[in-house]
Amino acid sequence: MRKAEEFSRLEAEVTTWRRHLHSNPELDFNVHQTAEFVRDKLASFGIGHIETGIGGRGVLALINGDKGEGGTIGLRADMDALPIQETTGLAWASRSAGKMHACGHDGHTAMLLGAAKHLSETRDFKGRVALIFQPAEEVEFPSGGFRMVQDGFLDRLQVSQVFGLHNWPGLEVGKYAICGGPLMASQDDFDITIQGRGGHAANPHLAIDPVVIAAHTITGLQSLVSRCTDPTDSLVVSVTKLSASNAYNVIADQVELSGTVRSLAPHLRDYAEQQIEVIARKIAQAFGGDITYRYRRSVPVTVNDIQATAIAARAAEAASQVESVNCRIRPVMGAEDFAYMLEARPGAMIFLGNGNTAALHNPNYDFNDPAIRYGIAYWVNVVSATLGTGSVR
């Protein structure tokens, strides 16, 4: 196992990679230059097995250990940016208008490349390490994680476990957080079109006002959480879009509203899908209107395997120190499409401290470069814990 301080020299080089990626953000599956950068770096490390175009633009690499036969584990980083205009003013700020790395995927990719360089030089492990560079984590279904799993690389490469990492603003640099079981919520999205009858705003009695129906619907949907769900369960229903007339004196024919559903329990996804329609339709019909409804399943719950969580915690403790790892973090309601890989294989996602920075998805966010050594050390230690001598099984 390695301490983070042992990677201080490598950190400087990885920082230049990270800032290059930050300056050149790309969205969703269109990570052409990013994937090319990753491929070229992997090749420069002397890694012979490199695959591109997995799940659209994903990159895979295999490093064989020098300690004999063993299994294959996967280490995953995401590569895509967000459609946000950056406001940091940094020297390495985005050069692409309306695009920025506001979630730290530039840091994730750079840290895994740093670990790849070290592992390819030392190869002090059994079996193989699969390096997984994924596109399109930030998009709606089907995302990059889903498409890479569907491409079958886990079976083809005989990957037995997968590990992911995400930076976490507000958590001190050098610290980690994780828990076994559900760590992050599922994400589903819904669209409701409320059909009324348009008219003049001065004569509402001659119309069926879909704006009024929408107001009652938004309020009614909150009862799913406040009055219809066990308070010990986690369910979030948020209406985030509302579109009606664009004139002061017009009652529109219809209103469109959309939102998101987050949960830590699969049965609540079924419940929300059914009950959102029931509530919206009955409210609309009570006012003389009706609805059309669409519900889209997106990312499942991110569930950490208990044994893999223990491995991840041990790797983090070795990189920093035992008291720097919170193994009982409360689950969060954000979603992460690494969940698809965790549905297919046992594994774990861990949070890496990003310090006192702006929040994720904020235009003033930047990945905190001093965290790089802790990410590299974590990845290297996961390999030691799973494929090294005396590894955890």
Score class of each variant (00 low, 15 high):
Trp168Phe: 14
Asp253Thr: 15
Phe367Asn: 10
Ala247Leu: 14
Thr109Phe: 02
Thr52Lys: 12
Ala310Leu: 13
Cys179Pro: 12
Leu21Gly: 08
Gly164Glu: 07
Tyr271Asn: 12
Pro182Ala: 14
Glu140Cys: 04
Thr309Lys: 09
Gln285Asp: 08
Gly56Cys: 08
Leu171Met: 13
Ala308Asn: 02
Thr122Ile: 12
Ile218Pro: 00
Asp305Arg: 03
Ala110Pro: 15
Glu26Gln: 03
Glu336Arg: 08
Ala61Glu: 09
Val299Glu: 11
Glu26Pro: 12
Asp151Tyr: 06
Ile372Ser: 11
Asp191Arg: 15
Ala110Leu: 07
Glu51Pro: 06
Thr309Asn: 03
Gly145Gln: 08
Ser223Glu: 01
Arg281Lys: 15
Asp66Phe: 02
Leu157Trp: 03
Asp189Val: 14
Pro370Asn: 00
His108Ser: 09
Gly104Thr: 06
Val278Cys: 06
Trp92Leu: 01
Asn167Cys: 11
Leu42Ala: 01
Gly347Met: 04
Thr34Ala: 06
Lys126Ile: 01
Gly375Glu: 03
Arg147Trp: 04
Leu82Lys: 04
Leu62Asn: 02
Leu221Glu: 10
Phe133Glu: 07
Asn368Ala: 12
Pro25Gln: 01
Phe37Asp: 01
Lys282Asp: 10
Val159Leu: 00
Ile283Met: 09
Val382Ser: 06
Gln161Thr: 02
Asn362Lys: 05
Lys117Glu: 15
Asp233Met: 11
His205Asp: 14
Ser324Pro: 08
Asp28Leu: 12
Arg314Tyr: 00
Ala286Glu: 05
Gly48Tyr: 03
Pro331Ile: 13
Gly55Asp: 01
Arg393Ile: 09
Val14Pro: 15
Gly347His: 04
Ala247Gln: 11
Thr240Asn: 04
Cys228Lys: 15
Glu69Lys: 05
Glu26Gly: 11
Pro346Asn: 03
Ala315Phe: 10
Phe7Ser: 14
Leu235Arg: 01
Val149Trp: 05
Gly107Cys: 07
Gly48Met: 03
Pro210Leu: 14
Gln222Gly: 04
Gly127Arg: 00
